[in-house]
């Protein structure tokens, strides 16, 4: 244990994702040794991001204004909504340039262990967006792990009565990979999700 303030800083840093006690200690001592101006800039950036950045009124993505860049863009297809867990998933999908519809960011996945239920996610907002009948397809792009799958199943059941097309991102083999290197679970999934080859 270090003197009060130093230990406080280490504790706070240790709460950040991906930072363990050793890393927290390293960062703390780096900051102690750093130029005061640099540290001020960092502190300012931290405060600014909390004050200035907000979440899009429509989709829940991070935004600098009331609505995010994608929701304001009139060229985006309003008939398709892609549901993701986090804002960073939006960035990942945007990089593909394959998707021209709108997004909906849930803010996580259903996970009782972490105390996250459907009410803690932006599901009510999603249902409100779907209510006017303009949306014809819902793409469920939650993570391909247990919690993501459970969230996708939950949403699919919830919107079933609305009669719109619900799709789930495919899971399976990585592009450009070798079949022999795929692990059994992924390969098994790829078999389950195989499709007709149209020629």
């Amino acid at each position: 244990m270090y003197e009060g303030v130093v230990q406080n800083l280490i504790d706070e840093l240790g709460l950040l994702p991906g930072v363990g006690p050793k890393s927290a200690q390293r960062i703390a001592f780096h900051l102690l040794a750093a130029d005061p101006a640099d540290v001020k800039r960092l502190a300012h950036a931290l405060l600014e991001v909390k004050e200035r950045v907000r979440f899009c009124r429509v989709c829940g993505n991070v935004a600098a204004e009331e609505e995010c860049r994608i929701c304001r863009d009139q060229r985006r297809d309003p008939h398709v909504i892609c549901v993701v867990e986090e804002s960073k998933d939006v960035v990942a999908i945007e990089k593909t340039r394959e998707f021209r519809g709108r997004y909906h960011v849930l803010g996580g996945a259903i996970s009782p262990i972490d105390g996250v239920g459907p009410d803690d996610l932006r599901i009510r907002e999603l249902m409100a967006r779907l209510a006017d009948g303009q949306v014809t397809e819902l793409i469920l792009a939650t993570d391909p792990n247990l919690e993501g799958e459970a969230t996708a199943t939950y949403l699919a059941r919830l919107v079933k009565p609305m009669g719109l097309k619900v799709t789930r991102l495919a899971s399976g083999l990585p592009v450009g990979g070798d079949l022999e290197y795929a692990d059994e679970v992924t390969l098994g999934r790829a078999f389950e999700g195989r499709r007709l080859l149209d020629v």
């Binding site: 259903i110 239920g117 459907p118 247990l146 459970a150 199943t153």
Partner: peptide, 13 residues
């Protein structure tokens, strides 16, 4: 209550 609205989902898995 509402907590159980997701129980069916976990049942499936």
């Amino acid at each position: 209550g509402d907590l159980l609205s997701t129980l069916d989902v976990w049942d499936t898995h």
